[in-house]
Design a protein around this nucleic acid. Structure first.
Lengths: 210, 210
DNA sequence: ACCTGAACACCGTTCAAGT
DNA sequence: ACCTGAACACCGTTCAAGT
């Protein structure tokens, strides 16, 4: 498609994101993407050092809507909001959770870093010192990525023709199921923080991490 | 190696597990494994339907030590023990966490199912009804897989020559860091369960899931 | 019961050279 | 600044046929 055109990096990422959403992560290959753009495979290596960098750029595009700073509120509300926004972003594209999980593992997403930073900030509002807040923030991310990857793989497996009618507890109220685990974490954070700390106010009181 | 030998399924899994530990998940390919066994690639398809099945069998081998029923104790101690045993199992092989995460996503590990069942049982001891206990159990698994995959990738990256000397908070007390997140979840479960429930005793009192 | 041989349809990456 | 051509070193999977 589209011969005799030269591309910038962002146009290549556009196409890659479209390819992902349309055909899934297994079909997001360098060769396939090149073909879709009417290019030779080697051309992509002018835009990206390797495939991981391309995947990171696609992950960042998916995550962007979840990285917008959340309105001021109590720290619990902020964490619930960031978690929900992250899940929504992952669900917005086919195999989004799987892609972002893989990218997170390889440490190649800048935007996920910003999301973690927002969670750290919110956890700081709960009275945790920076190091502990980072731990809590990452715990939230592990949960959201794990839950959503699981959810999405079931969704796509079901959509591919299987068990229609046998809808178990798994299918019903996914938002509630997601919120349950997130609330577990937020409740755990409430239980661990210094009792002298007011909700939403960082008193700077430290909590030992072990 | 070892020509003129015919293999059973378990011997093939042995070799695959060894290959994983020695060279990592990227080198655990069907062709490489066949070569290591002195076989033709096609031979492996007599033992396994596809690569995912092979990976699932290797994952099960790694997880086996973590699936042994834990000694009776309070539900909190059981969850902490299962979580720690799962992490230990994942860390016991190169790329263990990555392999098991991938296998979990494809739902191809029987042993991980048994581990989840033990967590569900322990959560039941906290007074959660079955559906909610399952949610809590899976949340624990998401955390352990996420934390350990992250930990292991950093460990292996550092081992590969990088940042020696600049050991940040990340390297110090990994056990404590792991326990922190797990305790967050257990505390969250304590906060959500029915107050009439004694520790370790399942009174059968239900909690709504949303 | 277990494996070979041979094929099919792919991969990611590099790099001199072209415009 | 962006791309081609061509090569290198691989993949997973299938299947008739062999022992």
């Amino acid at each position: 498609m589209e011969p005799h055109h030269r591309y910038g990096r962002s146009e290549v990422v556009d196409r890659a994101a479209h390819l992902l959403d349309e055909y899934g992560i297994a079909d997001l290959t360098m060769r396939r993407l090149a073909r879709e753009l009417g290019l030779t495979p080697g051309a992509l290596y002018w835009h990206f050092a390797d495939k991981q960098e391309l995947l990171g750029a696609v992950a960042d595009r998916i995550l962007e809507p979840a990285a917008r700073p959340v309105a001021d509120a109590t720290w619990t509300a902020r964490i619930l909001a960031i978690g929900a926004a992250l899940r929504d972003a992952l669900l917005s594209s086919t195999d989004g959770a799987e892609l972002v999980s893989a990218t997170f593992a390889s440490g190649r997403s800048a935007v996920l870093g910003r999301i973690v930073a927002q969670l750290v900030d919110a956890a700081g509002g709960a009275g945790f010192e920076p190091g502990t807040a980072e731990l809590a923030a990452r715990t939230v991310v592990y949960y959201v990525l794990g839950f959503t990857a699981d959810e999405q793989s079931r969704l796509q497996w079901d959509a591919a023709g299987a068990l229609t009618g046998t809808q178990s507890v798994w299918d019903s109220d996914p938002n509630g199921r997601f919120a349950f685990g997130l609330r577990l974490l937020v409740d755990g954070m409430s239980a661990q923080r210094q009792s002298g700390t007011q909700d939403g106010v960082d008193t700077g009181v430290a909590i030992p991490s072990a």
